[in-house]
Design a protein around this nucleic acid. Structure first.
Lengths: 341, 341
DNA sequence: ATGAAAAATGTCATCGATGTCATTTTGTGA
DNA sequence: TCACAAAATGACATCGATGACATTTTTCAT
């Protein structure tokens, strides 16, 4: 590997001048700059990032604690962060957080932060609501961004999507298709998102000046396939059978489709189904699900913007910084006009 | 952040001595060592890893190129690598490889390697068989380990599981349960693993001194659910219906279960089904699938062992280094004794 | 008790880049 | 043409750790 000195020698300048070229210092002009550039190319020179950040004292690594880097929400957000950090040239360091093991692996985390020279940390649900972890990081003076936390935090900014609004959009859409008998399969009661989605669902009726669906039109699910099956069976065997079902996530929506098919109902002719998340399963099932796309990539990009900008202005702890990223209603084949009565 | 000098001052020794304690140099003894240790604790000192590897010139970062860090095989291996690298205290750096974009992102990869100070790279299928990438890395002098490559490489060691043997184990097991009409759903013809699994399947019959299954007992699949459905439908409508089906992966095995159920066959009473991979779907379906567990974690551990040992002895290019990691047959509820005729 | 070997610790330079400040070169107006 | 400010470049110290080598302290045989 060639160093800045090799380049300097080849270009016939001092190392400092090479450094200036590297950092786009406007002081270096014309022919000198070109000679240096040329030498860098010829030697296939790459700056040593360790030496660089040792001297500068700064650091571009962003850390992320994950329980399951490959699965579900975390997996999809992880992917988005990787894409986003390629663009911003941030380095993303992943650490597994295994809550099972010992009470709270402070030592591991401290080690991780020091070892990977972490500048800041990204916390996803449910970790972003885990008090001991947050206060530990606060003590260590580590900046964080929280992704869709249940409770906002005074010290750290958060990046969210608007679950309530998204659920309302879904419901508005179903209403606009002429549906009047619209049921909801709610998510796990421990998740704030489940609550907000249900709220948005109800709100749409209020705004449209229609009565909210009867109590038996809202079934309790747990965000998984199995609970979706049970909820759908309950809803679809009501004497006033709904013409549309909005499930709080795609897995339960897929379960709903499967129950409907078993009962001989056609989708979307007899029943419209909407999911939430735009998880892989949403396009894998037939018919492909109408759903809400979680704006993972935009959330990841914003997260990095926040982190890269941090330090420019000190954080004001009297302002809660909540970033709301726009979602998108993805209309596929599982929804259609309400059946004629 | 405190430095080695702060510790030295507090302990009343020189920085070098602190360094010695850090590196477990046996030269430092008794009270001195204790004083230093104590000072480190009091200051919550963490060595600066950048300074350290700048000086040492070595580096513990292991790079991994992934197309989809969250999905399928790559996602599971990624997870295993994260677990394994926590133990060995290696840092794992992930870079997305998006073959779609431009012909071949040499510049991105070179940048990644330099920027993350990569010591070595781990390549998964199908990247580990991608010639241009491998020769590029060779030119850059980067050490690699290939995971389950289709064709072994003279320059780089590989870590594999024995697909042939595993398939044979599955088939032996089915034979031992008394099954005689055993069918196979093969995998995607482009994958070496598909070929090897089919080979192992056949071999079991040879070894048992039985005739190999008729040609129509081997259906061609593509490793996905849909192709599994079609293959299973074909196999289960043969007049001599098989009593056991060994699918080359779990998705196709799950598809087989679903077809069997639709036809009113009970599993395992009427039909035994075996998958391969022990993917999440294997335990998600009912009944849970008997399958072969890919030894992801052991493979990941071995990979890091190889990389951490590399450099101790130079690589001999006349020896192909192939590491075979033991798999495991996971017996669940989808297999049982052959039905009485 | 004494000297030499062994053990413990310290000094200084160094890894590759960049900040500070000094020096050289260039450009400008009289 | 010359003085002098401005622009371009360079010399040197530095970030935090460790290697090479020097120095001090201990140990032990005689």
């Amino acid at each position: 590997m060639s160093t800045i000195y090799d380049v300097a020698e080849l270009a016939g300048v001092s190392a400092k001048t090479v450094s200036r070229v590297l950092n786009d210092d406007p002081a270096v002009k014309g022919p000198t700059r070109d000679r240096v550039r040329d030498a860098m190319t010829r030697l296939d020179y790459r700056p040593n990032s360790q030496a660089r950040s040792l001297r500068r004292g700064d650091n571009k690594s962003v850390g992320m604690l994950l329980e399951d880097p490959a699965g579900g929400y975390q997996g999809r957000f992880h992917h988005a962060m990787l894409v986003a950090s390629m663009e911003t040239r941030n380095h993303l360091a992943i650490e597994l957080f295994t809550p099972g093991r010992s009470d709270f692996p402070r030592e591991d985390i401290a080690h991780f932060v020091a070892d990977a020279q972490i500048k800041a940390m990204v916390l996803l649900p449910p970790l972003c609501d885990y008090g001991p972890l947050k206060s530990f990081l606060k003590d260590q003076g580590i900046h964080c961004v929280l992704i869709s936390p249940t409770t906002p935090d005074d010290h750290y900014p958060s990046v969210n999507m608007d679950d309530r609004k998204a659920a309302r959009d879904v419901t508005d859409y179903l209403l606009s298709l002429g549906h009047r008998r619209i049921a909801h399969i709610a998510g796990h009661p421990d998740h704030a998102a489940a609550f907000l989605r249900r709220q948005g669902f109800n709100e749409a009726f209020d705004a449209a000046g229609r009565p909210r669906p009867a109590k038996d039109y809202v079934a309790e699910g747990l965000f998984n396939f199995k609970s979706g099956i049970e909820a759908a069976e309950k809803l679809l065997s009501l004497k006033e059978r709904p013409t549309a079902i909005f499930a709080a996530n795609d897995e339960m929506a897929a379960a709903t489709c499967s129950v409907a098919h078993k009962m001989g109902l056609r989708i979307p002719e007899d029943l419209s189904v909407v999911g939430f998340d735009d998880a892989p399963i949403a396009s894998a099932v037939w018919p492909a699900l109408t759903t809400v796309r979680q704006p993972y990539l935009d959330m990841a990009k914003r997260t990095l913007q926040i982190l890269n900008a941090a330090g420019d202005a000190p954080h004001r702890s009297d302002v809660q910084e909540r970033h709301i990223i726009a979602h998108e209603l993805v209309i596929r084949e599982s929804t259609g006009p309400a059946p004629a009565v």
